[in-house]
Each structure stands twice: as structure tokens, then as C-alpha cells.
Amino acid sequence: MAIIEATDLRKVFRSVVRGPGLGGAVRALFARDHEEKVAVEGVSFGLDAGELVGYIGPNGAGKSTTIKMLTGILVPTSGTVRVAGIAPFDHRAANAQNIGVVFGQRSQLYWDLPLRESFELLRAIYDIPLDRFRQNLAHFCEILDLERFMGTPVRQLSLGERMRGDFAGAMLHDPKIVYLDEPTIGLDVIAKEAIRTFIAEVNRERGTTVILTTHDLADVERLCRRIVLIDEGRVIYDGPLERLRSEYGTHRTLVVTLAEASSSEVVIPGATVVHHEMSVVHLRFDRRTTAAEELIRRVTERHTISDLAIVEPDIESIVRRIYTDGYARPEALPS
């Protein structure tokens, strides 16, 4: 049963266009030219309860706008949203009780309060039963290692500590759904790992539905089975991460180190040179048309090599390629 249903969501922002300089500013006071910018253009998807989905796209693709519409703080221009059976913007407060939100770039805790009192305030806001509150808090303290800075005002916390506090804060009221908007942005490797472990656990142990938007595709590889890829306001891929990899990760790279540095052009049939510096040559080839051993044979026939390696496409390079080339199902591939 779908817990989130977005149907043909569309959001158009209207803004005043102003000419340059003082003249433009004065003119804008009287005659306003409007410019329409389509942020989200007909996005549809559904999430089942307990899913953990990566919502991925480049800057300005419409990710945050979609998340804002799902959380009820932005009204769609057209289309419908149902979150746990509720239209979020019509029933903001009822919806707020069902969801938890973490913004990597914006804390939801109270800056002037120690973390512990921030949590107390959230207990009052969400009407969390006392025993449930204590239980959750003890649990989160343990897995997020909060105890050390529970008495520190939020504004004095480091980014990593603050994010851990934000995660606990967003989960205290046992939300059915959590929206995580770039939750690992700016964090160091250890903090990122702590957050990822927490997300995975919450999803697994509590069955919380999670939508994760991120630029760090390592988050996605670690956490999500399914991803929704969005570009220029449209969904361009929605499905298992593995399928994207197998469909789109058609090209592998053979990295060859030549025995001696050469600046002359390297030409190998069945592969393209994508990088050549000193003695190192990167050869990109389609695994469906060229077998690796065949390619290696062709290289060794022509050059003396001292080392070689085959690099599998990571999800990052796949997604980067989709952003630049657009998503088209690779042709000649049985699906």
C-alpha cells in the first residue's frame, strides 16, 4: 500500500523581472514583467511503507521543490500529493505529526537551547508520551552518541554533532515518514558513516519510510535499493539502483600503464582513449561488444605494458553521464 503518492506534480514559480540599475528598479515599481520558471514538471511516483528511496538530481533539478510539496510547506501549481492518506498542504498540522524532516543546511533544533531542552520542547510540540519519549531518547543517545553534548547549546555544536542532534530530533515522535534533504552535506567521513548507519537502522528496525535527497552518491549506494532520478523537473529514471547500473554501466575502463612514456597517439580498435597522460592510458570500452581479454590482447599486441587494471563504472560516473547526456535507455539491450 503506497504511503506516498505524487501524481503529476507541477510547480511553476513566478518572479518579477527587473531591468538593470536604478532605472530598472524604478520601472519595476510600476510595470512588473513576470517570468515563469518551471521547477517541477509533472513528477509522479509512489512509495510503499518501509521503502528507502534515493531522490537524486543535479542542482536546480527540482528535488527540494518536490520535497517541500511533499512536506506541505509548498503548494503545487497542479497535481496531487497524498502522504499517509493526507493532502499535506491542506492539512499541514496533521501531516506534520506524521513526518520527520532533516535538512542538512538548516537545523530544526532551537539554537539558544541545550540539546536536551530542544528535545523537551519537541516532546511538548509533538505530544510524545513520556515513556515513549524516554525510550526513544535513550536509544538515539546510544546509537548517535549524543550523551557527551546533551547539555551544550545547539549553536555551539559542531556540524557533525548538530546533525546527529537533528536526526534524533526528527525521529523522537516516531514519524511514519522521514524526508532527508542532503543530510550528509559537509560532514567528515566518520560522521557520514554514523548518519548512514542510523538511517539504515531506523528504516530496518522501525519500518520508517525514508526519502533521501543527496549529492553524495555514496549515501545512495550504501542505503538505497531504489532511486528516482530527476533532471530539469522531470523523473528520468525510477527503479532499482542495480538496474541503472547494469543498463547504464555498459562501459568499463581499461587503465594501462605503458612500459615507456609515449606522447604518440594510442589507437586500439574497440575502445576510445579518454585519458592519456605520460605512460598512463584510460581506454573506455563497451562490455557488450568488446570482451576485456580481447581488448587486453589488442593492447599487448601493439604496446609493451607494465601494468593494467579494469575499472567498473561507479554509480557516480553513471549518474554524471546521465546528467550530461540525458537519460535514454541504452539501445540494443535486452531488458
Binding site: G85, I86, A87, D90, H91, R92, A93, A94, Q97, Y110, D112, L113, E117, E120, L121, A124, I125, D127
Partner: peptide
């Protein structure tokens, strides 16, 4: 369908908490 959805019941507690914090 929408009519059947009720917001959370009004409680004074959060507002007392906000005032105390301020």
C-alpha cells in the same frame, strides 16, 4: 474524504513551553 481528516487537537502545552523557553 478531506473533511474527515482532523488536525491534531489543540493543546496549550507547546505554547507554554515556548514561553518558558523564551
Amino acid at each position: 474524504m478531506n473533511a474527515s481528516i482532523r488536525g491534531p487537537r489543540f493543546r496549550f502545552e507547546p505554547y507554554f513551553a515556548f514561553a518558558a523557553r523564551a
